[in-house]
Design a protein around this nucleic acid. Structure first.
Lengths: 229, 229
DNA sequence: ACCTGAACACCGTTCAAGT
DNA sequence: ACCTGAACACCGTTCAAGT
């Protein structure tokens, strides 16, 4: 089915490699989503019989995990040395949000393979600035490890919500408010008060400032930890 | 292919309903994972032709989102009234972690549909105690909405990591340390210091206390916000 | 009204065969 | 050594037909 005949690649045609396969897979996923990533479709994208891929990667699972590793390898944390630890913690979080936003169709795979081993090696270098920042904030080793996880978990949850909501037309806060208004008046008084005392403009969710104010709370919590010593 | 012949159900056999279908689907997913959930397999589990399901639910997507709604409907936040706001915030977070741990094979779907509309209605009642707690902590309406998202994002990221790591044999922190030791000595000094000054026992990750210490930091951050008024 | 089963257009992967 | 294509055992879903 491929464009070429069987056998070795002809002179002048670039041979199939792991890199070329993963590159094509990433283009496919970025452009058309995870659902478009099939071994057959990938073969077509490469102008090659689908089965040729199996000579470079053991199966579809390996294609996906290779994709995840490849994307995590792209992460660059801007560690402007002169900044305080607060700004360096934020820089780490922002770099990971940016990574996820660069490949929204891969976010589910990114966040669910980050904790397991798949991506650890690729994230090693990116994690150093975060460890360094938390250490210089005055945390104990135990506390550093805890906060590293907290920051990672928050970013993962946030980007998951961000891409899920972006792929929908309606504002999720506005629809929550509507849901609330359809209910009997006595129900959910606290939520009613919160949504009632906020303007429509304030209700419109801004992901950038939402992300930052989540970080505000975390940084304030870390400060509390550091003072406790 | 079904055990029954075509036509209406015979007297004495319970008819196929949305509830029976979703119940069977949840059993299937809990027992054998998301990969085992196929329309054909679900039909077999119900002793029915796979196509019969389409008379009660429009397709597989509807089965999955029905599952998510069903499970979110199970959440019960223990709101012991006498507790302070700190303990009520923690109670909300714990209830959601417990929900995810009760259905680990569904976690990916749970966390990725929570932010979009799918589960909002089912979570309305469960969210009231969190709003109430944050309000009574002294936060503004704007701040309450921000912290609600922070808590939800943290829990989502945490449970994702928890189930991903649990389905693996090795401890992820231990393997990070090993990775570090294989590197040239000058590399990643901060991570080396952190991992070096912690005992093997401390390194063994405990999800329960990890979850709680993440909440510690968040609660401390909320306290900072509340004092700022 | 509800259920069935053949058919269609897909999957991932194995394996023997080609050059 | 590398690539191919037929074949196998699956998918979700449409649609005409059964009772």
């Amino acid at each position: 089915m491929g464009r070429r005949g069987a056998g070795r690649p002809r002179a002048g045609e670039e041979p199939l490699t792991r890199e070329r396969i993963l590159g094509a897979a990433l283009r496919l996923v970025d452009a058309e989503g995870m659902g478009a990533l099939s071994m057959r479709g990938l073969g077509a994208e490469l102008g090659v019989d689908p089965m040729s891929i199996y000579h470079h990667l053991p199966g579809k699972e390996a294609v996906v995990s290779g994709l995840v590793r490849m994307v995590y390898g792209e992460v660059r944390v801007s560690s402007a040395g002169g900044e305080g630890w607060r700004e360096r913690v934020r820089g780490f979080a922002r770099a990971h949000r940016d990574l996820a936003r660069a490949h929204p169709n891969l976010v589910l795979q990114l966040v669910s393979s980050a904790p397991s081993g798949a991506a650890t090696e690729a994230m090693l270098a990116a994690s150093e600035p975060l460890f360094e920042a938390l250490e210089s904030a005055g945390l104990s080793a135990r506390e550093v490890l805890g906060v590293v996880d907290l920051v990672a978990d928050y970013v993962h949850g946030f980007v998951l919500a961000e891409v899920a909501v972006h792929s929908e037309p309606s504002d999720h806060r506005a629809s929550l408010r509507e849901l609330l208004e359809e209910r009997p008046a006595g129900e959910f008084p606290a939520m009613r008060r919160v949504f009632g005392s906020i303007s429509r403009k304030e209700l419109r969710y801004d992901f950038d400032s939402g992300f930052e104010s989540g970080l505000d709370v975390i940084v304030a919590g870390v400060e509390h930890l550091a003072r406790g010593r």
